[in-house]
Computed example of a mutant assay.
Amino acid sequence: MAFDWSRFYEQQGGRGVRPTFERALALRSDAPPGDAVDLGCGDGVETRALAESGWTVLATDSDAGVEERVLAGLPAEAAARVRVRRTSFEELGPLPETDLVYAGFALPFCEPGHFPYLWADIREALRPGGLVAGELFGPHDDWFGRPRMNFHDRAGVEGMLAGMEVLQLVEDDRRGMSFEGPKHWHVFHVIARA
């Protein structure tokens, strides 16, 4: 089943920044704004927050209208620090060197066969001390087995983070709501430092 991302973003209207993003920025509070990549930036909430705080941001998403959504309402000075690229994870290619890679609920939507390459690109792009933050889905998730999505158990997530300083690894395995209705979520909320 294909997701109607435009409908999803409309329903998300007015949301604040996600907790994992907020925590990642708090962990960098002693460092000045730098370069960031917002993978699967969607409605652009986190991209706008970064740009308004002085970060230079590469925002990527495969959905039509991403540039308009991301730049909507952004002051010209902040907008000048944002580059939006409409592309899928599979077509993204190498990432620029960066201080932060944020992927809020986006990484599970990379094709399983391509995901190891995307993860390697993320790790390679991080400067020393750089952070990766975002969510991965686990095998208890109701969406487990959907085509073109990837899922990881806890051991797999820990293996992906090997050699990094794990600052947060919270496993959320519970019933909740999604934009499609009731759903069992199995999510790993991750923040790690290169």
Results as ranks from 00 to 15, higher is better:
A72I: 00
A72H: 13
L74D: 05
P75E: 03
P75W: 04
P75D: 02
P75T: 01
A76Y: 11
A76Q: 09
E77L: 10
A79F: 01
A79T: 09
A79L: 05
A80C: 10
R81F: 04
V82T: 05
V84W: 02
R85L: 15
E90T: 03
G93R: 10
G93W: 11
P96M: 15
P96K: 15
L100Q: 04
Y102W: 14
A103L: 02
G104R: 04
F105M: 15
F105R: 14
P108H: 04
F109P: 00
F109E: 05
P112C: 09
G113L: 12
G113P: 00
A120V: 06
A120N: 12
D121A: 13
I122R: 03
R123I: 05
E124I: 12
E124M: 12
A125F: 02
L126C: 13
P128N: 11
L131Q: 08
L131T: 02
V132A: 07
A133R: 04
A133K: 03
A133F: 03
E135K: 12
E135Y: 15
L136Q: 03
F137R: 03
F137K: 04
F137W: 11
G138R: 00
D141M: 01
D142A: 10
G145Q: 06
G145N: 09
G145S: 11
R146A: 13
R146Y: 08
P147E: 15
P147R: 13
P147Q: 13
R148Q: 13
M149F: 06
N150T: 15
F151W: 07
F151M: 05
H152L: 12
D153Q: 01
D153R: 02
A155R: 13
A155I: 08
G156L: 06
V157N: 07
V157Q: 10
V157A: 10
